[in-house]
Design a protein around this nucleic acid. Structure first.
Lengths: 221, 221, 221, 221
DNA sequence: AATGAATGAGTTTTCATTCAT
DNA sequence: TATGAATGAAAACTCATTCAT
């Protein structure tokens, strides 16, 4: 009785009540369903209905959580970016040599992809379709962070003064494209993929043409 | 008869010409409009109506030339792939060293992109986001061709026995991603971009881990 | 028990008070919000959600007080009708001449409108457009009452035997339409409006064609 | 043969072709259905679906002609206003006395309403509902026109210098309200209604208080 | 062939109402 | 009683495709 009274006495102040639990859970149901659907159909072909159908919820419920298909996609994307970015940055901060910098970047990335292939596929395949901008703040920030880290490494003398913008682009391109290939052969071997990409860049970075001043500061847009 | 011909040859008060010209011309009108629309809205968001609207033609006419939005998109992709693939292959066939192989690949690619940025943007952004879903037969064929050329180079002893699948992926990833960056700074400098990418790979290839047997034959899809 | 009372008496951190007070207060909150919303959006475009949003209450609470949007609207209308009808009727009962009858009707009405423009606007515009659908029992009753009073005045010989139905309609039409105009110019001048309308009818009533038998008894619906 | 050729030779220049005919016809089908539906349910309660259902057409077809329910309503309203306004204005222009001015206004209006009750009902009942603005350019213009005509009559010395804004409002109010009543008794008797309203105003106008300068020029909004 | 309106299935979206807390 | 998320029926709207002209 006591507890009952307590509960009803704070109808709007309780945080982890059953309601909140259900709410978080439903949000997750939708996100998971969306991930699945996007991965299967691609973002463009997927409809809000498809997502709802993949859920035990009613159609209207979707709109209690997201305004549109795009909004769910962004939520997924940002969830991913948020999960991996800090890890990547942290590792790179610890690096003291080019080898470490490069290796840990790829190692972390490929391992993340291998462990979370649904998300990776979702985001890659969303590609096929609509203007789902990958240049979302969160994602761009991840790219910028890599570039900044490279520039910092150049400043420290760890890297030769290469074009940081192009190097970042090259790393990103190799990361995504090789990851795609990695996922196509079972069992996934992130270690081999990371070794491959790392070897390429470790040797390559040493011989890259030095950037002009313009080259270094370039890149914004 | 005379009148009839005159009329149908001027379906919309346009310049008179032979029927076949009009036909080819209409097809091209649609393709160009589609390129534009895809580049602006992305493939998924674009509708057939959008394409038609960007055309002086009527909606029904679209279906005289293409069965669907997808078919136009493929036509555009293939047009591009068809335009660049033979050039790339030919150049690579002439290569006698790793340096030449790598350099000519990137040089040709970046120059093509710089000279035809609308198409490049269309394909990148139509598909959207990160990377294109390039799994159209024509496009895949282009990738396979690169891999085959790499494998041939390995067989010839020109390349060390690296993982051809990963190397192809890495080249493709760098090519597209660096091209994207290149287009963001004016004036476009395909030579610098090619130098950058080439230097990366020329040095890198030499130190890439030798592929296992599995590695070499991998990559199916 | 004590605690329970305390809590339920402060459902939203508001001033403590007796339960009945809160209840009446909530009803009033809803009515006021509805008035506002109807005046802004019109009855048709307004949704129950709009009304709730304009309230500190939760959506479910609405249904503790009203069954539907329609019911709130009727409540508002009736509130108004209930507030003015007795006054109008009473005044007219005291009238001993046509002049008094007409004058007091318009005077009272325009003063009421000027003093309570929100309600007037709500009803005019909620309903929308031209004139309100005034066929709510309470409102119709107000019209009938006017007609009855006219008929009574005719019976007394105070009015000539005009068509009471048409006269009532004319009075109502002029009252609402002139009231609308009155509200458009600041400061509102109910006296001038009443003088205008009264003069029109006082002179007019004297020359109105005598009603046929049919005319007198007509009108119901 | 000749004609056939001629037709196909001007596929886009022909005006009263079969296509155009069908188009005009479909537009009318929708307008008529909308009139019916609005009159029955009121504007607010009516849905686009209701209108389509009352039509042999497909749902999408509605949107080839009107963007929304509101747009159809405006079309109806304007159709009506356009039909009656010129008539009213013309009659009033011919008037040389107050009697003629007043009488012809009401006579024309009530006859129009009686002959076209569906439209009248549509517009009146649309009222009950949403923000379907009666203050549409076309409708306001009709009101303004009446006021202007009154002001012109005052200038000519035909009318005493009354408050033209209020007089216009009074006429409009009586016209709509009495028309409503007229439609409730069968058979409709526009002549009696016009006589009633005219008598009221002819006598009334003579005794209306003279407007102040402000009063005369007032009214805009 | 070209035209462009009609079609109607399918999607997005809203919202009154219910109901567990 | 108050709360506010869930519901799902129904409304609004889109658009690929067909087809009479």
């Amino acid at each position: 009785m006591d507890t009952t009274l307590l509960k009803s006495s704070r109808p709007r102040l309780e945080l982890p009540g059953k309601r909140e639990q259900t709410k978080a859970q439903n949000r997750q149901l939708i996100l998971d369903a969306a991930r699945q659907v996007f991965a299967e159909l691609g973002y463009g072909a997927a409809t809000v209905r498809d997502i709802i159908r993949a859920t035990p919820l009613a159609s209207g419920t979707f709109y209690n959580y997201f305004k549109s298909k795009e909004e769910v996609f962004q939520a997924i994307r940002d969830e991913v970016a948020l999960a991996i970015r800090p890890r990547l940055h942290e590792e790179r901060m610890k690096a003291e040599t080019v080898e470490e910098f490069i290796t840990c970047t790829f190692r972390t990335f490929f391992e993340f992809v291998a462990s979370d292939r649904v998300n990776f596929r979702t985001i890659r395949h969303a590609a096929d379709t609509t203007r789902v901008r990958m240049d979302t703040p969160e994602v761009i920030a991840g790219f910028e962070e890599l570039r900044n880290d490279i520039e910092a490494a150049i400043a420290k003398g760890m890297f030769p003064p290469v074009n940081a913008d192009y190097l970042m682009a090259a790393i990103v391109g190799v990361a995504f494209e090789v990851a795609e290939r990695m996922l196509r052969s079972e069992p996934h071997d992130p270690v081999a993929a990371a070794e491959f990409a790392s070897a390429l860049f470790i040797a390559g970075v040493r011989t890259l043409p030095y950037a002009t001043q313009a080259g270094i500061s370039s890149g914004t847009a």
